[in-house]
Design a protein around this nucleic acid. Structure first.
Lengths: 347, 347
DNA sequence: CTGAAAGCGCTTACAG
DNA sequence: CTGAAAGCGCTTACAG
């Protein structure tokens, strides 16, 4: 119980060896107290715990994972921490990780592929239990790199090349379909789909769904596709201003914006600036349910993706893959979106 | 250049030993190629690089930091990833970290002290170069634990107990002052400060600033303090509804909301639901400049905190502390906020 | 239930 | 510029 003098050498803290000496037991016993408590007698356990407390001992995780060959963290690389869907996914993943005693480490790629690759490599070198990746662009190269190193990786919100890895997706075609369908049901006949080019998959998927709903509705309903030049609120403002200049009969009466930011920007210009009533003259649906969507100029009707469930599902797939080893078969989980009606569409 | 058969044993990848064997050099030389390239001849370097590529060798970071005693990551624990100020801080910290060749690992405590403590411990056990903590409550215990273990920690957006550690703060008193002062300058005479109890420091600091501005203005200006029971949009809605029931002359004409969410909720109820014009009848200022603030029912006038600069400053303080060793003296960096006028206040 | 020993995969002096 | 050796701090059989 005597407090031994702390190691003076640098700021290397006390080691398990020091704990063992203080407690008067062997190194292995200290390790057992920490990792296999059932193997140690209560009395010994207590002596060791006291020594740990007295010394302020902190396990060295590097030594631990080096010796054990395992690691209690999962790394998650997010293309964009500002997107609330991504935050929800991180939250769900964290819940599922904790349920297994694992920690979730986050890295923000700030929409930059170089950052994304660097963080993938960092997690790779850290020998994390596995990696979750929610990208905004094709990331086949990075995925292949991880897998070539034997590291498990699960993709979120972006379909991998078939058979490359596990993934959790939203049925984005249905996102587009539900959005357009809702407008059509509300009586809109001149729809527009506002989106931009680029390789962000959801854009294309949602477009297909929008088209499907319009075709299904028959000749009474038309579809215009508008290129906003980008996916942000600023691009929405630009698009909104252009639309506001049109004559009333050239204006779409129902608008599906591929991102909520686009929708919010458009509504601001149309409704607040130009006085074109939303949803009176133009109804607008967003495709994401961002945090901002509910508190916009006109609270936005959206098609919601279940981010938290996606995160949970991804973590479960990852852990299954890790434990299955060679028996593993890649799986894709597709979750369904849901319409959330607010004020930017009739009713 | 011959591709040797990959190790079949488990999924332990090739080691530096394997690389050395393939390249026909010794282990130390491989290490030098990786860590001290100048010490190795170009020809040898190339042979080693080829071997690394051929084998798909990935450094084992655990072994690396165990052997070297250092670690190239900084851990950052955020109380709430959904708060855009915190995201900005993370962004700034990441920039500053990269400038020094360090990676920033993020952990989201989801406003839960238990999570926060667990992640602090995780980073502690990982022997990260240092820790950045942006808490929402008093975290003295966790800070003391880190420091007792010799781990450097810098606090963001929350003042530590004096002399406990370095910190980067916003002058939150000035946040309150600027907000109130702006309202007074705009002609408001019946101010209210909407906030809630709890130990989130900015709430108290901003209150002091609001009071100071009102006192400075003299007897013509009054201040009411309203307890919203919490800091979220929902609490704002509740508060807004209560205010809307008041007679017109009992209504404050200028409102400082301690969080943007509160402000947005209040404005929604007042302006959009009850038809009480903002800023016509009631002017509203938020204290944070969240992402949502600009795209609210009425774009919100706010006092902005320089999150990115705060993150950069914190990372610099941390790295200074790490390199200074015993010569280090704790420092507090206080950055000044700035008024951003939008539509929720006159002009 | 306890202890002595080997080994995880690197880095770092140190000698050549 | 290169190579052999020690050691970082643990975990894990293995023998007692």
């Amino acid at each position: 119980m005597a407090t031994p003098r702390p190691r003076t050498q640098g700021h290397a803290g006390p080691s398990m060896q020091d704990v063992a000496a203080t407690a008067g037991v062997s190194l292995g016993t200290v390790s057992n107290v920490l990792n296999h408590p059932a193997k140690v007698s209560p009395a010994t356990t207590q002596r060791v715990r006291d020594a740990i407390a007295a010394l302020g001992f902190v396990r060295n995780d590097a030594a631990r994972s080096l010796a054990s060959g395992s690691n209690s963290s999962v790394g998650m690389v997010l293309a964009d921490v500002e997107n609330s869907l991504f935050i929800d996914m991180a939250y769900g993943a964290q819940e599922a990780a904790r349920a297994e005693g694992l920690k979730l480490l986050l890295a923000n790629a700030v929409c930059d592929m170089q950052f994304q690759d660097e963080y993938l490599d960092l997690f790779d070198e850290s020998r994390v239990t596995g990696v979750l990746l929610a990208p905004m662009q094709d990331s086949s190269a990075g995925i292949a790199r991880m897998r070539a190193h034997g590291r498990q990786i699960v993709l979120l919100n972006y379909a991998p090349r078939p058979g490359t890895c596990c993934s959790v997706l939203v049925n984005n075609e249905n996102v587009g379909y539900l959005a357009a369908r809702h407008l059509i049901d509300a009586g809109c006949t001149r729809l527009a789909y506002v989106s931009a080019h680029g390789d962000y998959q959801p854009v294309q998927d949602r477009r297909r769904g929008v088209r499907a709903a319009v075709e299904e509705a028959g000749p009474g309903v038309s579809l215009e596709e508008i290129d906003s030049g980008g996916l942000t609120t600023a691009h929405g403002h630009g698009t909104g201003r252009k639309l506001a200049r049109r004559s009333a009969d050239a204006l779409p009466d129902g608008l599906v914006a591929v991102t909520d930011e686009l929708a919010v920007g458009i509504i601001h210009e149309l409704h607040t600036v130009a006085g074109i009533s939303v949803p009176g003259q133009v109804a607008v649906v967003g495709c994401e349910n961002n945090r901002t969507a509910g508190s916009a100029d006109v609270p936005l009707t959206v098609v919601d993706s279940p981010g938290r469930l996606m995160g949970q599902a991804a973590m479960r797939l990852l852990l299954e893959e890790v434990s299955a080893g060679d028996r593993h078969r890649h799986a894709t989980v597709v979750l369904e979106p849901e319409l959330v009606v607010r004020s930017s569409t009739p009713r």
